[in-house]
Design a binder for these strands. Structure first.
Length: 648
RNA sequence: GCCGCUGUAGCUCAGCUGGUAGAGCACAUCAUUCGUAAUGAUGGGGUCGGGGGUUCGAAUCCCUUCAGCGGCACCA
């Protein structure tokens, strides 16, 4: 039998018969390692202890102390254990797939009766029983016919369909947790007893389409979370609780920023304090864009369907548009309009006014454009996904050779803005040509390369989303993360040669001939609604001073200080600080608590002493100490802090 | 849009197997002028998301509809 050489992390090698398993190797090292071992890393790949190794390789035996493989195995084995538990309790349930995801796993089931929240407790209990049985995990490779026959006999059509979709050259691996069998790539633990019985929890039940396809059956998904020990689970659950406190919907209500109501689903009623954030942010963006070489425009809300037909949106997105029909008394036809779902066709109308020269390019046109999209009811989410929103939209009309420099310029612009707003952790995704597309491959090559090169030129890495681009061009997505880890696309840049064509945009080139410009659709914040939602969550409501809707409260301790408090407020207001006096007949404790809960960054307490000395006792949100400052000092200090970052 | 859950005073929530709604906070009034996270007393406020039905009687049961939440699908 052929011999292979396995090299361990410490550099030592041992020689084994080809086909040796990592389990054998672990035994060879020591019986105690064999017992503790959970898997092996073989040439960087994650191996089950039962899989044969056929070639020379680097090998490391993993134990529960190796976090990454341990988490993957624990979660994956739990997925199987959960599926076994569910089928134990409800034998008429069909199993489908159950992958490992961030922080845990899920498994999708097909069962007539819906699972209830109480069922989760039952399933957890059954899972613990299975873990305590310490059943061995076995694996075998089966041929297709046998596997298909097996699942057909067992009435598991989903598994049969899965097998059919696995490429023919891939082996079909079966796993058994005790006598419960599942088709699975592996790897898995040695026995169910290796799963910590106190470090997992079933989290929720949800619907999910089979294979992510809305035309296929809706399955029931159970989500679980798991870690390698009880404390890690506890920490994770604690983090979730903390994150829930940062939810913009909760803070929006508590801080009295906005509300939404039944009569206008998916649309925001901005309250004074919320609107202050909005306008402050908008003013900032307006200044940044002006400095960035944009011209600002504004275009109509209600636009005849003819334009949407021309742009192609009527065909593709009619279902998602708010249609406005107007009966003119003498009109032969009813006028059919749509609330604009986007600004680009309108911007092209402005571009098309008058002849444009190559000298006008790149023409950067910006609009705080209010759009309405009839989003599916289930898509709505607080102010992050709404039906009425305002984009910080912009379109750059340019030549093909300007795509890359303009994109690099935009990325630099965006990163400046994000940094000003406190975001350093964001990612770029590059979506490339989809199956259904227009334009030649050469054009797509050029556009994709321009975007990728621009990212690299700007010094940013990006994730490639193959086939996720729009039908007319590739796009960059700039993604931020909310309090509970959901990712949201905020900024975007899309290349589009289609719309200028459809709407006849053209410019005169150096040759005196007419040419088509390319359009770059771009947004930095994306929409004010979504971005403010993210902003609230990122800062847990404690916004940077310049964005805080209520920046300073001057709280009196005795009513004799009322006049002085008003004087202080007047001085702060004159210095451009949002200040208000709280002269209510309440104790200072009460006022401090109320405004702290309200996330006011600075509370200035004034009593007899302060009136006498013309000072204030300042307290910064989140700090317990106070400091005494003179009126002039505090006005100067807060004037500076209230200055937006671009004006510093 | 799909699956599931939820919908009771401004907010957070209680209300068992059906018998005409309750708490805390908030709010109002009065008293208190009290130095850094809730001063006390008194009081007003809801017909239980909307519509329909069953019943002698429904917040509690059924149907329907709307909205929200958790996912899935969608996201120009």
């Amino acid at each position: 039998m052929a011999q292979i050489s396995l090299t361990f992390p410490d550099g030592n090698s041992r020689s084994y018969d080809a086909g040796v398993t990592a389990g054998d190797v672990a035994s060879d090292i020591s019986p105690s390692l064999r017992k503790k071992a959970i898997s092996a890393t073989v040439n960087g790949a994650h191996y089950d202890l039962q899989w044969p190794i056929d070639t020379d390789a680097q090998i490391a035996i993993n134990t529960m102390k190796d976090e990454a493989p341990a988490l993957e195995l624990v979660r994956h084995d739990l997925a199987h254990i959960m599926a076994r538990a569910v089928q134990d309790i409800w034998p008429d349930t069909q199993v489908t797939i159950g992958p490992v995801i961030k922080d845990g796993w899920y498994y999708d089931f097909d069962r007539k009766e819906p699972f209830t929240p109480e069922d989760l407790g039952l399933i957890e209990k059954k899972m613990k029983e299975i873990i305590n049985k310490r059943d061995d995990v076995r694996t075998e490779i089966w041929d297709r016919t046998r596997a298909v026959q097996y699942y057909t006999d067992r009435g598991e059509p989903y598994k049969v369909e899965l097998i059919d979709s696995i490429p023919g050259n891939e082996p079909l691996r079966m796993y058994w947790h005790g006598d419960w069998q599942d088709l699975c790539r592996g790897p898995h633990l040695q026995n169910t007893g290796q799963v910590p019985a106190d470090a997992f929890k079933l989290m929720s039940i949800a619907g999910a389409y089979w294979r992510g396809d809305s035309t296929r059956p809706m399955l029931q998904r159970i989500y679980g979370t798991a870690f390698t020990n009880k404390d890690a689970l506890k920490d994770h659950l604690h983090r979730l609780e903390e994150a829930a406190k940062r939810d913009h919907r909760k803070l929006g209500r508590e801080m009295n920023l906005f509300h939404m109501q039944e009569e206008a689903p998916g649309q925001v009623f901005w309250h004074p304090d919320g609107w202050t954030i909005y306008t402050e942010l908008q003013d900032y963006m307006r200044r940044r864009q002006r400095a960035g070489g944009y011209v600002e425009v504004n275009t109509p809300q209600v636009v005849d369907r003819k334009l949407w037909e021309k742009s192609g949106h009527w065909d593709k997105y009619q279902e998602n548009m708010f249609i406005v029909e107007v009966d003119e008394e003498h009109a032969r036809e009813k006028a059919v309009n749509a609330l604009k779902p986007m600004n680009c066709p309108c911007h092209v109308q402005i571009f098309n006014q008058g002849l444009k020269s190559y000298r006008d390019l790149p023409l950067r046109m910006a609009e705080f454009g209010s759009c309405a999209r009839y989003e599916p009811s289930g898509a709505l989410h607080g102010i992050m996904r709404v039906r009425g929103f305002t984009q910080d939209d912009g379109h750059i009309f340019c030549r093909e050779d300007q795509i890359e420099p303009e994109t690099a310029r935009f990325i630099a612009f965006l990163s400046r803005v994000y940094a000003d707003l406190g975001f350093n952790d964001w990612t770029i995704k590059l979506s490339t040509r989809p199956e259904q597309r227009i334009g030649s491959d050469a054009t797509w090559d050029m556009m994709e390369k321009a975007l990728g090169d621009a990212c690299r030129a700007a010094g940013y890495d990006f994730e490639l989303l193959e086939g996720e681009g729009a039908f007319y061009g590739p796009k960059l997505e700039f993604t931020l993360t909310d309090a509970i880890g959901r990712n949201w696309q905020c900024g975007t840049l899309q290349v589009d040669a289609n719309l200028p064509e459809r709407l006849d945009a053209e410019y005169i080139g150096t040759d005196g001939e007419k040419h088509r410009p390319v359009m770059l659709h771009r947004a930095t914040l994306g929409s004010f609604e979504r971005f403010i939602g993210i902003l609230i969550e990122e800062h847990a409501g404690k916004l940077p001073f310049w964005l805080a809707p209520r920046q300073v409260v001057v709280a009196t301790i005795v009513s004799d200080a009322d006049d002085y408090a008003r004087e202080l407020v007047a001085a702060l207001t004159a210095a451009g600080v949002r200040a208000e006096a709280d002269t209510r007949n309440e104790k200072i404790n009460y006022k401090v608590r109320e405004h702290s809960v309200g996330k006011v960054p600075v509370i200035l307490a004034v009593g007899a002493r302060e009136v006498e000395e013309r000072t204030a006792t300042a307290r910064q949100l989140g700090e317990n100490q106070t400091r005494v400052v003179t009126m002039d000092e505090i006005v100067a200090e807060l004037r500076l802090r209230a200055t937006p970052p671009d004006l510093l």
